[in-house]
Design a protein around this nucleic acid. Structure first.
Lengths: 195, 195
DNA sequence: ACCCGTATATTCGGCGCCGGATATACGGGA
DNA sequence: TCCCGTATATCCGGCGCCGAATATACGGGT
């Protein structure tokens, strides 16, 4: 069986091992230090399964080094040539080809007609507030990173997220307004269904 | 154990059973007819496990009706009062509270520095092309739906997706331009690393 | 010297998800 | 009437993911 590009955590592992050999726990630490865990979901269980999978497909190699007992604790892994190739090819694909992601909010908003208009308005406004908090937090963080002299390329994904958050906020405020003054298409029916 | 709001497919099931009792296969058919499967990931395996989970938590009830053999094929389910409550509460939460989703593109773009600038530009432009296709397809669909006289509220999630696609396209063209003429922060280093 | 909370490093059991396999009914053509 | 492709309806085995459990080392306070 050929390696399946499911869990992006595997991509992070390949990227880390492209720098230098590491053991899984060290990978996790490094990801935390660099705030990568906010972009790629990380937990220990998945990390070890993903590493084992990469090893099975010979994208990485294991060199056991024991420390205190005689059992090999701290298994250190290194990337192989096919692993490097996989890293770059996967990365290209991830950027070039948009993937269907099924965002949960899309599912939610598609059923908003099930809520009474007044309740719908309330929850949409709550979401706007939450997004505003995220936006200010993100703006502060960007300010700080730029002040530290870090290049923009090092936090480019935050720049992207900022743009997307702003867009979502914009759409939400439009929808809230259209709900408030009943200009959203189908409003009369919507109100009638909830009396 | 209390019911866990993981798979949004369970929400779709509750919403369908809020209309009328159904058996799982019929739910799938209905979702397909209404193009709900483009918003909520649907496959038969998950559907039956999700239905069983809802049943176990008494959010829906089963009424077995046999057809030909003596085994109960076509098990018809109906929503309970707690099920209806769960539907509405879950829906509110889904809209009000933004959830961390870990979009794959964010992971990809965060590592774009691993690719040579020229290659990065290429794949970003490929993504723009792909998004353009999605955008025109979506515009055509919206035109058609509006022409059929369907209320906007019935396809509000497409309206949302349109806004988000446009925002992503905008950010990508900015990034492509900034890469092309080397104005993205950290470009000199980026180019140096790939000689 | 001893204790114990924290950091280090990995393992494990369970469970949800998925694609494919299974089984039966229906309907149109030779 | 018989055949077989399609539609109907569900089940099942495997696997990836996750959170909790496990085990050992380290270090500071008394």
């Amino acid at each position: 069986m050929t390696f399946k590009r499911t869990n992006p955590l595997a991509l992070a592992v390949l990227a880390l091992l492209a720098e230098r050999p590491m053991h899984p726990y060290e990978m996790a630490q490094t990801m935390r230090e660099r705030h990568q865990e906010e972009v790629i979901k990380l937990n220990y269980g998945s990390l070890y399964t993903v590493v084992e999978s990469l090893h099975k497909h010979e994208l990485i190699t294991a060199s056991a080094t024991q420390k205190a007992g005689n059992r090999p604790e701290r298994t250190v892994y290194a990337i192989t040539d096919t692993g490097t190739a996989e890293l770059h090819d996967w990365l290209r694909e991830l950027i070039a080809v948009p993937a269907r992601e099924y965002p949960r909010f899309e599912a939610g908003i598609s059923m908003v007609g099930l809520l009474p208009p007044h309740d719908a308005l309330t929850v949409v406004e709550q979401r706007v507030d939450a997004l505003d908090q995220q936006l200010t937090a993100l703006a502060v963080l960007l300010e700080k990173l730029a002040g530290m002299g870090l290049p923009q390329l090092a936090w480019i994904e935050l720049d992207y997220r900022l743009a997307m958050l702003r867009a979502e906020r914009g759409w939400l405020t439009w929808f809230a307004a259209a709900t408030r003054d009943g200009t959203v298409g189908g409003y009369p029916d919507w109100e009638d269904r909830h009396r």
